[in-house]
Amino acid sequence: MFETNVDATYAWLGLALVSVATAGVAATLPASPPPDVSGVAHTIDSVADGPHPSRAEHGLAASRIRLTERSVALRSDGGTGTASLHGPKITPVLARQTERNRTDGSGGLRRVLDGVPPSAAFDDPTAFAAAADRARDADAEWKPAPDRLAVRRVHYGSVHVTLVG
């Protein structure tokens, strides 16, 4: 009457192993989803595709960002998301203005992104175009992500540039 059934012991051991395995899998899942990179790419493309100068902002829920002239990537604790950009090439402007940036023109690009007219930040459209080319040619690195990403389409003479930062 008080005998231990061998089958019940195996069933309890199997249940214990499945429980431990399930807990292990649940512990490795990220606590949050990856960042919404498709919304950011849509915002960038909608400004870049426009025929007129315009500006937009998009909130970011990411810790790191990487911009190239044709893609955007966001990283957080939930993972990494990448999206291709389908509009014209963008000009990444992520670094804050420093002495180095003032000499290569990206400090002026930051000022233009923040709202200053390009004619106030650059001597002529050629200097503006050269600064944008240098910014696009720079190596894309992971950088700390801001709370909001700004996108600005700017025309200066015959130069049309979409700044993102």
Rank of each mutant, 00 (worst) to 15 (best):
R55T: 13
G157K: 02
K143D: 05
P125L: 11
A8K: 09
S71L: 01
T103A: 12
P117G: 07
I90M: 09
A132P: 04
V161D: 07
G39R: 12
V116I: 12
A62E: 06
T126C: 00
A130K: 08
G87T: 04
V37E: 10
D147P: 02
P51T: 10
S158M: 06
P117L: 06
V6E: 09
S71T: 14
K89R: 14
R70H: 12
A127E: 09
G108H: 01
A27M: 13
D147F: 02
H42N: 07
A140S: 14
D123E: 14
P51M: 05
A73E: 15
R100L: 11
E99L: 10
V159P: 01
A73F: 04
D36W: 03
L15D: 06
Q97S: 15
P88G: 11
G39I: 03
D124R: 03
H42R: 15
A8G: 01
P53G: 09
A61D: 14
A145G: 04
A129F: 01
R102S: 09
T4S: 07
H160T: 12
N101R: 14
V25H: 06
A131Y: 04
R75G: 00
V47H: 06
H42E: 13
L113I: 10
G107K: 08
R152E: 04
G39E: 10
A73G: 05
R153S: 11
V154F: 03
R136I: 00
A31M: 01
V161L: 01
I65D: 07
F2G: 14
T91W: 03
D49H: 09
A21N: 02
R110L: 15
T68L: 02
D124I: 08
G105Q: 03
A56Q: 13
A48M: 10
P125G: 07
P33G: 11
H52T: 13
S106Y: 05
V112M: 12
G24K: 08
A130T: 11
A145E: 08
E69F: 00
A83Q: 12
T28Q: 13
I65S: 09
T98C: 08
R152P: 04
T28G: 00
V6F: 05
E99H: 04
E141C: 01
V25C: 03
T9M: 15
E141G: 05
R111G: 04
H52D: 15
A8V: 15
I65N: 07
R64M: 12
G50A: 14
V164N: 09
V18N: 00
H160E: 11
D45Q: 06
A140D: 09
A21T: 14
V161G: 00
L74K: 07
L163R: 08
T22I: 15
V159M: 02
D45A: 02
W12Y: 11
R75Q: 11
G81Q: 10
A140Q: 03
S54L: 13
A11C: 09
G39S: 13
Q97T: 14
L17W: 04
R64Q: 14
D114A: 13
V93S: 02
P33K: 11
D36N: 11
G108E: 05
D36H: 01
F2M: 05
V20H: 02
R70K: 10
K143I: 03
S158H: 13
R64L: 11
D114G: 07
A31N: 03
A62T: 08
G105T: 04
D36T: 01
D137G: 05
